[in-house]
Design a protein around this nucleic acid. Sequence first.
DNA 1: ACGTTTCCACCTAGGTGCGAAACT
DNA 2: AGTTTCGCACCTAGGTGGAAACGT
Lengths: 299, 299
Amino acid sequence: MALSCRAHAFSVEALVGRPSKRKLQDTREQEQSELQENEGGEEEEERKNNAAEKNEQLEMPPKTEPSTTALSGSGGGSGNDNQLKSLKEKDIIQVELQGSELWKRFHDIGTEMIITKAGRRMFPSVRVKVKGLEPGKQYSVAMDVVPVDSKRYRYVYHSSQWMVAGNTDHSCMTTRFYVHPDSPCSGETWMRQIISFDRVKLTNNEMDDKGHIILQSMHKYKPRVHVMEQDTRVDLSQIQSLPAEGVKTFSFKETEFTTVTAYQNQQITKLKIDRNPFAKGFRDPGRNRWKQWLISSDF
Amino acid sequence: MALSCRAHAFSVEALVGRPSKRKLQDTREQEQSELQENEGGEEEEERKNNAAEKNEQLEMPPKTEPSTTALSGSGGGSGNDNQLKSLKEKDIIQVELQGSELWKRFHDIGTEMIITKAGRRMFPSVRVKVKGLEPGKQYSVAMDVVPVDSKRYRYVYHSSQWMVAGNTDHSCMTTRFYVHPDSPCSGETWMRQIISFDRVKLTNNEMDDKGHIILQSMHKYKPRVHVMEQDTRVDLSQIQSLPAEGVKTFSFKETEFTTVTAYQNQQITKLKIDRNPFAKGFRDPGRNRWKQWLISSDF
DNA sequence: ACGTTTCCACCTAGGTGCGAAACT
DNA sequence: AGTTTCGCACCTAGGTGGAAACGT
């Protein structure tokens, strides 16, 4: 493996599968506000290649909640609300998405993320706050991106909508895994700071050797955040799959996105330009002023 | 303490003192050059850049040694030569300074490092290769900067020399400690890469809260590299002092420097401008061309 | 047609020494 | 007089989307 100690992205065959909690599908919106989609780590490894049978049609954009928190009980599956409330908050690992307002604005339009051969950052990026860790215990925090379904999508301009255009060819799909550079770190330190995954890069290059997360274009994905107990002395730079135990997984509906190599929906382009500091050059007023400069100055 | 998990610099009261192994002081330089050649089995790969060296008109080009290696026996400091030679190389942690040619060129003039309130990087920066670690074991690698003596210095222009100008007032001296961001990491991974401390910043602000290394201006210092066995589960972000055991410390004579807030020796300035990519704007040819631009163009 | 790649102007972010000003 | 600070022009390094070229 050509990854250096801090390359942070690793192949995880075992995680390829999509979420199989189908009965949550329609209630997912509420879960976002109450408990998000928490996927208990323990039973993740057997989810391999459940083909996505249905879900062929697009869904209506969900209504947005102001802030988003995901809880994790002990076991795995999203426990129910009452049960969770009966536990002390300290005992429950809780992950709160930062910047969820912006995420929701994108989500309402239909978030698109550009992927390139060299690797492209996400905007918005995944940023979370964690609560309920044991202060003295060591944890690692990681992120990956998993398919939402096995469909290929196509953007229909005249209706400004994404339509199913076929099925995924599961050729060389290995899910990579970005370990947050601060890992491992004490629960106290993790909880004191905002955990940002802004350096994560997405690529469509299946041969990528820079440790970026490999995705297929024109597919729907969602990022996931994993909080891992680090009591055993495993070297994260070496492991090939998630530890079976002591892993809590969180995801947020509003962070779902469709991969593209060029933006399809112009509203997305506009919002990106408007909010991403690096795109400031494309904000309107006085654009192309330099051309007039060029005209008026002679060499 | 306001340090985040990866701020990497920590107060270490226990390390405040100046080096006490005085008998090694004068022989250290020989150790450097002798040891780099002995048991010369597998360190041949680093000989690449010698030919590319262009020598400026400055001082005589020093007969450049390709690299500088320091060995560590069992104890804390640099063990003695004979004893080391009797051990197998694999059992000896060995740290080789990268870029020692450049360091030596600065050293021959009298290296100066600028320190600022906001924090200033070092140039050259400390970069090392480590050998002799146990591949599977976990290590952390750190750097600190310790006084060479308790003297205050002054640069005498007409003789181009640094002269003792008084003694240090040991007021608020706490040695800080920069833990390499890859820590902790397996010996295998550490040995596979060049370990660079180029993000280290030096400051003269005793109140610094950004984790930079705090130094006093007009004093002589030397950087040290520490290789720490990480078998115990200590959180480096929390510790206040170096572990007593399992730490090997290395330093290199040619990395000594004098702290300044503005360069004193113009030969140092010239060499910095010549070699530091960020100072390219001060390299001579066509400098100030933009002014003529300004004159010929009218607004 | 449609999707991808490449190059580019335009940004952010931040590391240089300079030189004037300020400090002591 | 010797040091330190600050704003600055000039860099490196790299993240944007546009637009044209390039597949397929």
